[in-house]
């Protein structure tokens, strides 16, 4: 069975290792100093898509991302690994979107892509950790969802058997296509970029990139349509502006604070026998332990 697969991916700042160089002097995080990466669990989702494609020859993977123009990089990284096409959803109208407004825009773009059997995405993105967009997109498209996917066991007669994580355990569920899966980090890690594909697809570009001065691959793009990445605006996906971006977001950020923990006056000890003996005596005497 040939499948049309859509993978949702997000470009995120790498929040896992916020080093000193990414901290402002007032203790705030300088987002611009963090590397922009392919959201880790979205890579797990891409891998499951690639496995489905291998098992179902003739299948097609479209990778969809929403973000500024530089997020086109995520599409290229998807192509290096084996995706067939890329769509960037970008518009000022999407700025400031919460998860509901984001899922509205993504669902509109998925409808525009047209026929699909499976939508795959990471369980959550590391900049927000909400895990909301997947289920919200599923709902907007009227699809059943399987979250916390670990593994796709099989696909037979239009039904998928999926292994997923649950609290303190594992569940095996059967769900009909079309279906949305959110994939967690326990799924197989994504294969690396393929060298041949990298050579070919590093030239892939969205129209905005093609229009920048000094763009060198115009000829190649004209000859190889697969290098032409799609760039869609709100109008392109027939979106309703009142449901997008800040105005389409029921949640508002009232305040943002840096995390500051109350420092304590601490007693310091060395690792010498005398010091540790003294500490144990003190902890016993003040009933901290014992």
């Amino acid at each position: 069975m040939k499948l049309n697969i859509i993978v949702l991916a997000k470009q995120v700042p790498d929040t896992r290792n916020v080093g000193e160089e990414a901290m402002n002097s007032d203790g705030t995080v300088n987002r611009a100093a963090l590397p922009a990466i392919f959201n880790p669990e979205d890579l797990n989702a891409l891998e499951l898509a690639l496995q489905l494609k291998e098992n179902n020859p003739g299948s097609r993977i479209t990778i969809l991302t929403m973000g500024p123009h530089r997020a086109a990089d995520i599409l290229r990284q998807g192509l290096y690994r084996g995706a067939d096409a890329g769509v960037l959803l970008t518009d000022r109208a999407f700025a400031g979107a919460d998860t509901l407004a984001t899922s509205y825009a993504l669902a509109a773009a998925i409808r525009k892509i047209g026929e699909f059997d499976i939508v795959l995405c990471g369980r959550q993105a590391i900049d927000g950790d909400t895990a909301q967009v997947g289920p919200q997109v599923a709902r907007q498209l009227g699809l059943p969802q399987v979250t916390y996917t670990r593994k796709i066991i099989e696909l037979k007669e239009g039904k998928m058997l999926v292994e997923r994580s649950i609290e303190n355990g594992i569940e095996l569920v059967e769900a009909p296509l079309p279906l949305l899966l959110t994939v967690d980090a326990t799924a197989d890690a994504c294969r690396p970029a393929n060298a041949y594909r990298l050579l070919r697809f590093h030239r892939a570009a969205i129209p905005t990139e093609q229009a920048t001065e000094g763009f060198r691959y115009a000829e190649q793009l004209a000859a190889d349509t697969e290098l032409q990445l799609k760039e869609w605006s709100l109008t392109d996906v027939d979106g309703d502006a009142t449901r997008c971006g800040l105005s389409g977001s029921p949640t508002k950020v009232r305040k943002v604070e840096n995390v500051v923990f109350q420092a304590k006056e601490s007693k310091r000890y060395s690792a010498s026998d005398e010091d540790i003996k003294a500490l144990v005596s003190e902890l016993l005497a003040n009933h901290t332990i014992g």
């Binding site: 700042p13 929040t15 896992r16 916020v18 705030t28 995080v29 987002r31 590391i126 900049d127 927000g128 950790d129 029921p250 949640t251 508002k252 950020v253 009232r254 305040k255 943002v256 604070e257 840096n258 995390v259």
Partner: peptide, 21 residues
Amino acid sequence: LYSIRPAFGGNIVATIVNPYH
């Protein structure tokens, strides 16, 4: 309701409100 949560990998804390829904 003030829904207070860490964001951005735990480096900031945001207070979220739902004024109209």
